[in-house]
Design a protein around this nucleic acid. Sequence first.
DNA 1: CGCGAGTATGACAGCGCTGTCAACCGGTGT
DNA 2: ACACCGGTTGACAGCGCTGTCATACTCGCG
Lengths: 337, 337
Amino acid sequence: MQRSTIDDVAQAAAVSIKTVSRVLNHEPNVRESTRQRVMAAVESLNYHPSQSARSLAGSRSYVIGLLYNNPSANYMFDLQTGAMERCRQDRFQLIIHDCTRRRQDIAKHALGLIDQTHADGLVLSAPVCDEPLLLDALHQRSVPYVCIAPNQSPHHASYSFMDDRAAAREITDHLLGLGHRRIAVIVGHPDHYSAVQRLLGFKDSMKAAGVEPNMQLQKQGFYDFESGYTATRELLALATPPSAILACNDDMAAGALMAAHEANINVPNDLSVAGFDDTYISKVVWPRLTTVHQPIQEMAKVATDQLIRQLKSGAQSEPKRIDHCLVVRDSTGPAPT
Amino acid sequence: MQRSTIDDVAQAAAVSIKTVSRVLNHEPNVRESTRQRVMAAVESLNYHPSQSARSLAGSRSYVIGLLYNNPSANYMFDLQTGAMERCRQDRFQLIIHDCTRRRQDIAKHALGLIDQTHADGLVLSAPVCDEPLLLDALHQRSVPYVCIAPNQSPHHASYSFMDDRAAAREITDHLLGLGHRRIAVIVGHPDHYSAVQRLLGFKDSMKAAGVEPNMQLQKQGFYDFESGYTATRELLALATPPSAILACNDDMAAGALMAAHEANINVPNDLSVAGFDDTYISKVVWPRLTTVHQPIQEMAKVATDQLIRQLKSGAQSEPKRIDHCLVVRDSTGPAPT
DNA sequence: CGCGAGTATGACAGCGCTGTCAACCGGTGT
DNA sequence: ACACCGGTTGACAGCGCTGTCATACTCGCG
């Protein structure tokens, strides 16, 4: 019941360790009968190659690092789940690294992580994937990496993304279609690219509908519950409050709902509230949030896939857009007349 | 800017690699002046020891595995955050492993993980920490492990826990104190120890208050939103519905709120709803949930601490209870007369 | 002043693999 | 019969560390 090594397997299959290595790494030029003998030995000994030995000896470690600095649990969880799913397929190990605190020397820390773990590559999630110093450092050390929803296309990396601007247009159009004209927008965290894009999409639609921009109805938020709550209180205190609020993520939308409930305002009869992301929260608040589904898990999976492919082939792949979709639930309704 | 090795450091500090190793591992018998020279070299070369080489050569890998099979994002996130925090302190690497799917051969998988990663030990979270086959297998291979909130005290491991039963008594007493007598309870997932304990605590208090048990008011849930929602719909359809509902976690409580809202029942005026765990969700639903704070992050941190200590000293530590506390918010109020 | 008992340091093997290179095997073309 | 070639296999070095053991150095004390 002890740990078995490649020597044990080699002995059991009556081949050299090198042949075992070949079989395990799917190298060519192994006779089928030999391959089967080796696999049988692997099975029966319940052998698992040592990652440490592999990464020390070879050029691959089968470890991928996932860097994040987004404090939302749901976001993180989806990210992680998507990346893990893809990793498991090719028996990669995923190492999670939180870089929320270190803004300055993030590049140094990332390189340290690479040195320590011998990670083959990194998956960078938003917004850490937009740190130019980090990207430069990785490129200089030729560490392969991919980005999830980056700001501008990184020069040296593949990435997955969704069209935030189009998505914002869709949900704004949904509100406009319900007859709303006084629509407020609670903007996301200024550090996040998505916040900018979503605001642009909102403005696109409003302009197309011929609605005059009104800065009173645009509030700065930070993608958290609290800021959505505060912004909505201010909006509701206006002489003529909005008939609809587009919050640029679900947490802020939940905050908006809270403020509305407290002010005894009926959603959606007196006020429509729309969110963004379709996280777990959007399904458990009351009323259930109309929102846009952001396919985080899928984006993470695709990005990880791009990375793994790159590790195998050496070539970057094309950026890949993942589809969003509008999810209409109960928090939006016709504009009051 | 290339990766530097222990040889580089040794050369820079004009010592042997063994001495560098000594300094980095805080071994005794190194002259202070030598130590400083080495540290300076480490700094200036930005040296990070290779985990692979370390674990191959030595008996420690500085890797800890965290096993979970609880699909709640918030639970996971807290777990992970707590464990990571402690790991960082001693430069341990945390490896997350989801074992949701594999119920049967979980033991085999865990040992495979150990073989692959050379992990020094495992942190097992509830409910996976209650798989006897897993615990046995780990013990047989003498893999150090600790548990978070295990069912029965594992023989060969330290663990951290909270007193679910007492916590349930507290929140039940809170409801009783508000004058409620017809209190329904939505029980948690039968696989989770906590579910049993919380139900016992509830019954303790009800009995102490002299309330006759009423099986109509006890519903089986599964710690998810949906089951809380369904159970509550059934409860509200009763000839004489309860005046208060204790849901054994926040997700189910959120489901209860949803059902109440849909039935146009005012919370807390007509119905009180209490949750359990004090997760993020309890602060964003309306009305904000009265609940019990379950210190998951702290439990994870403490358990990880126990593991790391054990790795250093070889000795188990005492089980450690982490304090919960009642959090009264807006979802509970006086019983209607 | 020399000797024993630490104290400080280094030489070296080897952890479990992969990469390199050489060897071998059987069929082909001439 | 022989050189040749591609497919198949194995011997062996070495990745960057730690553990073991040997060695050199230091200090107190007889």
